[in-house]
Write a protein that binds this DNA or RNA. Structure first.
Lengths: 148, 148
DNA sequence: GAACTATTGACAGGTACCTGACAATCCTGC
DNA sequence: GCAGGATTGTCAGGTACCTGTCAATAGTTC
């Protein structure tokens, strides 16, 4: 039961696996994977992203993002349009069905997260978020010094 | 750069990916994967675990654990011995080389984590750990209600 | 002690993800 | 302009992980 005391890395791993499981469970009824839900969320916030943009935002390979978006496209939730000025890239937009699907799924996920966060004060949540951000930055920084 | 504001799930995901990257980078020089390091750490703490035990502790499939332990065994860092009373299971023990490898790698990982946690007070770290534990428990609980 | 269930380690097969490469295209410095 | 480098979407191939299954063994109930 005890992950590995003292190594916060593995605490974070277990938390991520657990959260992913819970969110995935909440999303199956909406026929969405966790990654697809994240993409829908981002594309709703910033329409017209390219495949490469999505890949960077969700921290995955361009290839993986492309395949995942293929699923969303086949389901009719997003559509690709040629970029008006850059002939390499395709812009990705949510369809009406995509927006509706997101509107259905988002409250479910938010409810799950709210339920899990119950019992923690806003101050504590702020500390947690700050800590998580710090960890994330650390990784981004280490990429800049790959072979040290 | 902004993962997805408001959804802590994706904050945790980015933190995990980042931490894994940093730790993996620190472990390459010791020729260990993150999962292998975790297994060494556990087997040092609780010698004689079975493959299934290791799988449960690191939250992975028995199969995956078996393959990963195969790598450690081929490297001479662990050894399998038949269980004295249960003829199904094999007990896994660290070899002297395994203990030495762990002793070399552990300070590296601890230094990385200490560097990342710098600037957070013990109280704040305690809050973070409590929050991570809460998330982990949530996942374990949801497994008990798979089809609700 | 016999039947039933659960568990262990292994096997096969599939899935998701990644890396490395490529032509096409954009951008920048000269 | 135009050569050089960077970026985009895509292809091929590999790796790591998972699920589903199996015989062998252990524990449980009657």
């Amino acid at each position: 039961m005890t992950p590995i005391e003292g190594c916060s890395t593995f605490l974070v791993r277990h938390a991520w696996l657990s959260l992913r499981g819970v969110v995935a469970e909440a999303l199956v009824r909406h026929d969405l994977s966790v990654a697809q839900f994240a993409s829908l969320l981002m594309l709703d916030e910033v329409p017209g992203l390219s495949v490469a943009d999505v890949a960077r935002k969700v921290s995955t390979a361009r290839q993986s993002a492309n395949e995942m978006l293929g699923g969303l496209e086949r389901a009719g939730l997003v559509e690709r349009r040629p970029h008006p000025s850059d002939r390499r890239t395709q812009q990705i937009f949510l369809t009406d069905a995509g927006r509706q699907r997101l509107a259905e799924a988002l409250p479910t996920v938010q409810a799950v997260e709210a339920r899990l966060a119950a019992g923690f004060s806003p101050d504590e949540i702020a500390v947690v978020n700050a800590w998580l951000h710090r960890m994330t930055e650390a990784g981004a920084a280490s990429e800049e010094i790959p072979t040290l």
